[in-house]
């Protein structure tokens, strides 16, 4: 199943009454949405509020979502409209340099530097996460690092990775899983584990 089909399956579960499935979509798209909104609104607290509001609006509207577009495209449009309405209510305008009035918005996945205006705590967390992933990647055995890089960075299919690495698809699947587990083990202490941060 493709990424879009997985999202659609989650949407259909939510439409069938499974609220918790929505948490999986929030977890998956929270950072992309945050980066998008951070191009419109400078205050990190406002960005987080708008991100929350966007997800709540999306949940309320999910009953009418029919999958004509990808879920994230639909979500981003809600996010942009939420931010624009918020700025209009404040008497502020979207800056022309945000590029969000064009189709660029749908592919605005980041790459641009996060705003320096972020809180010190959030900046620290950002740095810690990036550093942890970099170190975990560097510590991986070469064949695991190559497999996860070909998958996550290059976006190759298991079949193509198997061909590139000269090994069976089952081996590729296992190597990528082991790489993910090694990195995730280093990340877990940084992820919310307090009772009020579990969902």
């Amino acid at each position: 199943m493709s990424d879009r089909e997985i999202d659609q399956q989650l949407v259909e579960r939510i439409q069938g009454g499974d609220k918790q499935a929505f948490g999986l979509l929030v977890s998956k798209y929270q950072r992309k949405l945050y980066r998008l909104l951070a191009r419109l609104v400078r205050d990190p607290a406002e960005v987080e509020d708008l991100a929350q509001e966007t997800f709540i609006k999306a949940y309320r509207a999910l009953g009418s979502f029919r999958g004509e577009s990808a879920f994230y495209t639909w979500l981003y449009r809600i996010g942009i409209n939420t931010a624009k309405n918020y700025l209009a209510a404040q008497g502020r305008r979207v800056s022309a340099s945000s590029g969000l009035d064009s189709s660029e918005a749908e592919s605005a996945e980041g790459g641009e530097r996060l705003r320096d205006l972020d809180t010190p705590e959030r900046q620290l967390m950002t740095r810690q996460i990036a550093q942890t992933v970099d170190e975990a990647m560097a510590d991986l055995p070469a064949e695991l690092r190559e497999a996860i890089t070909l998958r996550e960075l290059e976006g190759l299919s298991y079949e193509d990775i198997a061909s590139a690495m000269g090994c069976p698809i089952g081996t590729v699947r296992s190597r990528i899983f082991r790489a993910r587990e090694a990195i995730a083990a280093r990340l877990r202490p940084l992820l919310g584990t307090r009772a009020d941060e579990r969902w």
């Binding site: 996460i129 960075l153 919310g192 941060e197």
Partner: peptide, 20 residues
Amino acid sequence: CLLGDVVRSGAQPGMEGFVA
């Protein structure tokens, strides 16, 4: 989800507790 975002897009905003 987090490690995929970091590997693909670099530094990520700290969003701890956001889903909850």
